[in-house]
Design a protein around this nucleic acid. Structure first.
Lengths: 344, 344
DNA sequence: CTGTTAGCGCCTTCAG
DNA sequence: CTGAAGGCGCTAACAG
């Protein structure tokens, strides 16, 4: 691969002149410029961004560290981040942590070495260590989807508490009283908040929060399946089930179906996080939908601002609303007494 | 951010010694080594991979240039590529081209400048120009999902022709004779092949290929919706519909539903590309499923081999089989005569 | 075992 | 308008 000197030699100029043709064409006389351009074309010269980065301390690369690109929520975030970054001539390195802390930390370390210009980061836990390790290097970060108490970072997230609250209220309004909460990992802020929202709705409605209806799992289909499976073995079944995220609900739905129960006739199911309607033929799940595309856009905007204006910013927290979308997976309770037997 | 000299100064050694501690710890005496390590820790020194890349001509970064991460097929590919790359300590830069050639070429140019070590590339068209522009720079490439006649590249793809053939046969076996083909863009090899498979199945069954049943569109939900909408305005409706990919089928399903028709009772629907069953509550579509995860793994393996063994390789083409999965969206034809009126 | 020199490819600074 | 010198951070190659 030819370098700037090869071009310079061929064009009979100094390397710096080639550099100028590339970066400030106006400062070069048309005659030499065209000679240089011809040489560039002939050699198919491609400027070396690595060398440029070494001088400029800019890689024009963002890191997107998320939990699992396989979840349509994160897919949408990734898509929007990439769109927004592209518009500002940044590329995006994608990393899946699977909420695994060691994987996450390994990635952070590699990405810091790569000198990415900034991080869009979904921390595996709500502890501030990881975020701090980035901040200590003065590398811009925006945290997505989760709060990190104890770290001063920009955060873009949805109002999980309100989302879960609304879903629970919706179920209560439908007459449900035995509402199971399939919660996410409690070391993740969004999972905590969703549990909080659930509890608040119950309490405000004068209902008691019963621990037996609350089960903790991971944000995965398998976990939702397993935890719901457990729940369905109990003697008394819930009449409704709130999944802390879409994957938990999907796993639970499979467990429910395999147990021979019908949704929503036997059990209503709902969750935070939508599944894009164009993905599923007929949207079915009642959900508190987030706006993943917005989250990605806003976060990228904040990050690019940090990168471009390295001064001290006030720490921003953008909390986007969720939207209750009622579909066919929830239904007014009717024969709840019967359901206990049904499950057996 | 401290550099290797800062560490060296603090540890009272030469920079090269620090370098050795990082890269060949054994060649440094335990005493100085621990002094250096202490300095590294104290300064929180993070080696600059940019500088290292400049010397080594290796970025440990792969480019994944695909059409749209939003499609679960590509999501799965991306996930597997990232998994495979991580295992070999490579990172992945993700780029969506939306089958837009200028977007694609812009990306290629940026990525070449970034000196990525290799490309996993889904060309927007079957023309060899783009691939050749990479090959000319002697940068390793593997093409995914599509053939590129005229370019000597490794390719990993599914057997689209066979997939479409089997689906069409399946429909014919169910008694369908009016089978519409919602084809993809004919400048993309997979779309051509799927159309070929459709035609072959008809011909082999002694049926005539009727142009009115063949409609060309993009590989998107919107396009599928639009094209199917057109089709449903005709006086005679098909009894079955074959989408060239999952998105086309999803769009078509929406159009069908909005036209007041039922699937599969009024129209059977099927397509190439699955939608992961854990994504949709109850899998519904009859499909010819590809193995996106495999495609990503295999392609990454080929690419890493090219990177690691820069000698001349024989050009490889890996063609993975598709799997016919019969679900509830297809059904034996019964009352096809009636359907024409239904649609109105 | 440790250090010096030099250069990867580019661009900022300063001269001409 | 063009060029020469020097350095970004790191590590081969060659001493000592």
């Amino acid at each position: 691969m030819p370098n700037i000197r090869d071009v310079a030699t061929l064009a009979q100029v100094a390397p710096i002149t080639v550099s100028r043709v590339l970066n400030n064409p106006d400062t070069v006389s048309p005659k030499t410029r065209s000679r240089v351009e011809a040489a560039i074309a002939e050699l198919e010269y491609i400027p070396n961004q690595i060398a440029r980065s070494l001088r400029s301390n800019r890689t024009n690369t963002l890191a997107l560290v998320l939990t699992d690109i396989t979840n349509p929520f994160w897919t949408a975030v990734a898509r929007s981040v990439e769109d927004a970054a592209r518009g500002q001539s940044f590329n995006v390195i994608l990393c899946n942590t699977d909420e695994n802390e060691s994987k996450q930390n390994e990635y952070l370390s590699v990405l810091l070495r790569k000198r990415v210009d900034g991080f869009l980061f979904v921390p595996a836990r709500s502890e501030p260590d990881a975020v701090r390790s980035i901040l200590r290097q003065k590398v811009p970060v925006v945290v997505l989807d989760r709060r990190v108490p104890g770290a001063e970072v920009d955060v873009v997230r949805s109002n999980s508490e309100a989302g879960a609250y609304e879903l629970t209220r919706h179920l209560i309004t439908l007459g449900h009283r035995q509402i199971a909460m399939l919660s996410g990992p409690q070391n993740v802020s969004s999972a905590q908040e969703r549990l909080d929202g659930y509890k608040r709705a119950l309490t405000e409605a004068g209902l008691t929060v019963e621990e037996r209806w609350i089960r903790e799992g991971e944000y995965t289909v398998d976990s939702g399946y397993a935890v719901a499976g457990q729940l369905l073995l109990e003697s008394e079944l819930p009449t409704a089930l709130l999944g802390a995220n879409n994957f938990i609900a999907l796993g639970a739905m499979r467990a429910i179906r395999e147990a021979g129960l019908r949704i929503p006739d036997d059990i209503s199911v709902t969750c935070v996080d939508d599944i894009p309607d164009w993905l599923v033929g007929e949207p079915f799940l009642t959900v508190a939908a987030q706006s993943p595309y917005d989250i990605g856009i806003q976060a990228t905007k904040l990050l690019l601002r940090q990168i471009r204006e390295p001064g001290v910013h006030s720490v921003e927290e953008i909390v986007l609303p969720t939207e209750l979308i009622v579909r066919r997976s929830t239904k007014a309770v009717s024969t709840q007494a019967v359901i206990g037997e049904y499950g057996r």
